[in-house]
Design a binder for these strands. Sequence first.
DNA 1: ATGAAAGCGCTAACAC
DNA 2: GTGTTAGCGCTTTCAT
Lengths: 340, 340
Amino acid sequence: MAKRRRRGSQRVTMGEVARLANVSPSTVSLYLRRPDEVSPGRAEKIQAAIDRLGYLPNTMAGGLASSRSNVIGVLVPTITNSFFSETLETLERHLRSAGYQLLIGNTEFDDAREEELIRSILSWNPVGLVLTGFLHTRKSLSVLANNDTPIVEMWDYGQPGLDMVVGFSHHACGRLVAEHMLRQGRRRMAFVSTNFQRDVRARDRYHGFRDTVEATGGTVELRELSGRSHAEETGRLTHALMQDHPEIEAIACSNDMVALGVLCECQRQAWDVPGRIALAGFGNLDFTTSTVPPLTTIEPPRREIGQHTARLLLASLASELPEAEKRLDLGVRLVERESV
Amino acid sequence: MAKRRRRGSQRVTMGEVARLANVSPSTVSLYLRRPDEVSPGRAEKIQAAIDRLGYLPNTMAGGLASSRSNVIGVLVPTITNSFFSETLETLERHLRSAGYQLLIGNTEFDDAREEELIRSILSWNPVGLVLTGFLHTRKSLSVLANNDTPIVEMWDYGQPGLDMVVGFSHHACGRLVAEHMLRQGRRRMAFVSTNFQRDVRARDRYHGFRDTVEATGGTVELRELSGRSHAEETGRLTHALMQDHPEIEAIACSNDMVALGVLCECQRQAWDVPGRIALAGFGNLDFTTSTVPPLTTIEPPRREIGQHTARLLLASLASELPEAEKRLDLGVRLVERESV
DNA sequence: ATGAAAGCGCTAACAC
DNA sequence: GTGTTAGCGCTTTCAT
């Protein structure tokens, strides 16, 4: 038998609970928010009524009445990627346990979409907003300026920012990899990257790499994929790169997936890694321990970003934060394995 | 200078827009919902006022007044995993473009947590609910029964379900892999798995595998990891497995990450894959094309699940769906590569 | 096509 | 400690 869908059939209200418990609605409300301020006897009756009726408070009504939502908006470029999804998972755990509901938006690396999402989320009257990176449209900035919600820009560091900042320097990531390769005596380098248009942070890592290498007289060939990493394209690109520049002795990649594609091509061509070519990635993804050889990479503070973003947001919800505590560089760690 | 945080400072309301545009609030409301039902002259004035004041409608107030939210709740075991995150991404794209806001909850493979999240999300008065799988606590079921929201249970198939079902049979996944291995003449098999407690669907795949192999007189050794796949533990387990059962000629894994761990151990021990050991995974993760040899695996319909879940939900929001259309088996595809 | 009025379900003063 | 009252910002009849 098909379940009857009582569309619009009202759910149990606080008033009905109140009636059943023989108290006023405001007592029920009080009981729900500060249980120990109602007498034990009534508290018990109210709880019984709630259980009996299966009452669930209406969050929207509560939010409207108190003109204070428990909503926090979070915008990430994609959730299909352990970088942001781990940050998100940590963020959501910390924020939910503090009583907040996350509103997650997927910008798909598109700032016009970010603009739309910002408006959409702002219409929920969030008490906080988390954005990824510093790149926002003019309109986004003006909408945000009209608004006094605490904002954290995460996953990046090195620019002033709108309010709070929790991240790390992608430029430093590139530098770290470069320094490590230089230390191993490599001079002729290449950087194979996902598309810069799509991911501005990959470009920052490239700049850090290139600047450091060139400062010591080395050279860097840049190769950009057309989109996100794709094993075949990466292979082809690497093959062409080595054909044009057989002198290359180290390849840094914008992330581990790209590095895997390159490594795979090296295996096909029987180019020894790291003997003939040193190879490094970014992200310290799970599989990097399992490749042959294990991949040298950069560990970004995925979960720490989530944790500290939550902390800063919560703190700034409690009281205005001193300027000095509003910006946090979490740093990164070079994971030295055997591919360099 | 620190930005003054006007806490509680009211945002621009519809009333203020109305005043500026010299119309009544209800006209503004009408303009926002059905623009072509207000005269062009006023429409223009209203839009001007909106732009001028930077007005953003208050979703909560709207939802309360119309007693109809635009919220859809989604509960997944984890977003840190391309299985669910790709489904989620697709689901969110389709649902958002239809005007809905997703409320995402992370159950962390814990049904007590799911119960909490269900209550928490129900308090937003969602017009739809998406759950992962069929496993819910008694209390969850009773809360859900008190509720007439359309529900989709996704990522699984083969049980009655609460309302709508969009997924595939994990038992069939195991069977497919088994049949393929049997076809290649393998008889002594093993199944290496993430923990069944954590992921019930891995157990279903195991059962499908075992039942099929044993039906033809083959044998299956089961090895369960203590938690989620971890390269080291997988390596150790595989080593011990082969020591105890050197006769094993095929290993099926509960997912690709586990398979990678096993493959890695095979490389270390110089056991030829697939010569000595055939190997298969589940998930068709990105890296599976890049391993040596490329990994035979199962492609689950991640994005299709999201797409069809959205479609069913939207349809059932428009009108009661016939029973026949409420259950969808999307099937899976064996991706034959070189590891079997 | 437009506006007045009555809520939506709850919270927050305030009085008792 | 408890109830009364007045909104929160919007939508929705229902007149006009």
